[in-house]
Computed example of a mutant assay.
Amino acid sequence: MRKTDVQVFFQKNETIKGKGRLLRNPKISSEIDRLKADQAYELKLDVRDVLQKYIDIAFADITDFATFGKKEVPVPNS
């Protein structure tokens, strides 16, 4: 049986609501925080590192990555 768009919509919304309920549980929330902290420690990253990368990308100059110029390219006769 194929689900209708409405059924899929409500199923997704119920999933989202369920996640909200789980995050209100202090044990689950603290475990998620602990896992995130462990991951950040292992990667040796913090918010400043990520922000700096975004700044580097935002202000990057295309000439840092590519060269431009004029060059003749032979075109075969068709």
Rank of each mutant, 00 (worst) to 15 (best):
D64H: 12
S29Q: 11
V47G: 00
V47D: 14
K17I: 05
K3S: 07
F65W: 12
V50Q: 10
D56C: 03
T63L: 07
E42Q: 12
N25M: 06
I57N: 02
V75F: 13
T15H: 05
K36P: 01
S30A: 14
R24C: 06
N13A: 14
R48Q: 15
A66D: 07
D38L: 12
A60F: 14
I16Q: 03
D56V: 02
D56A: 11
E31S: 02
F9A: 09
G69T: 02
P26F: 10
R21L: 11
D56T: 08
T63Q: 14
F65L: 06
I16W: 00
V73P: 02
E14F: 10
F65P: 01
S29I: 01
L43A: 15
G69E: 08
T67C: 03
L22S: 09
E14K: 07
S78C: 07
A40I: 00
E31F: 01
S29Y: 13
K36S: 12
D5L: 05
S78F: 11
A37T: 07
D5G: 00
N77G: 03
K17G: 06
I62P: 02
I57K: 06
I32Q: 02
I62T: 04
R21T: 04
K12T: 13
D33I: 10
F10M: 05
F68N: 00
V73C: 05
V47H: 11
D64T: 08
T15P: 00
Q52P: 00
Q7S: 05
L35Q: 11
K19N: 09
E42R: 07
G20W: 08
V8C: 02
V6A: 10
D33G: 06
D64E: 14
L35D: 03
T67H: 12
T63V: 04
D5S: 04
I16Y: 13
R34D: 10
K12Q: 08
D38G: 08
A37F: 07
V75K: 04
R2S: 06
D61K: 12
F68W: 14
L23M: 13
T63S: 11
D64F: 08
T15C: 00
K44I: 09
D56L: 08
V73A: 03
R21Y: 10
L35H: 03
G18E: 05
Q7I: 01
D38E: 15
D49R: 02
A66V: 15
K27I: 14
K12W: 08
L35S: 06
D49G: 03
D38R: 11
L23F: 15
V75W: 04
I28S: 03
D64R: 11
L51V: 15
N13T: 06
D49F: 07
R48I: 05
K71G: 07
T63E: 15
A58G: 09
L35Y: 04
Q39D: 11
L23Y: 15
D46V: 05
V73H: 08
P76M: 12
D61P: 00
P76A: 15
D46S: 07
R34P: 00
N25I: 06
I57Y: 13
Q11H: 08
T63Y: 14
K3E: 05
A60D: 10
V50M: 09
R24K: 13
I55C: 01
F59M: 09
L43V: 05
K3H: 09
E72F: 09
K71Y: 14
L35I: 14
L45Q: 08
N77C: 02
A40T: 05
L45T: 03
F10Q: 04
K19G: 07
Y54N: 14
L43E: 11
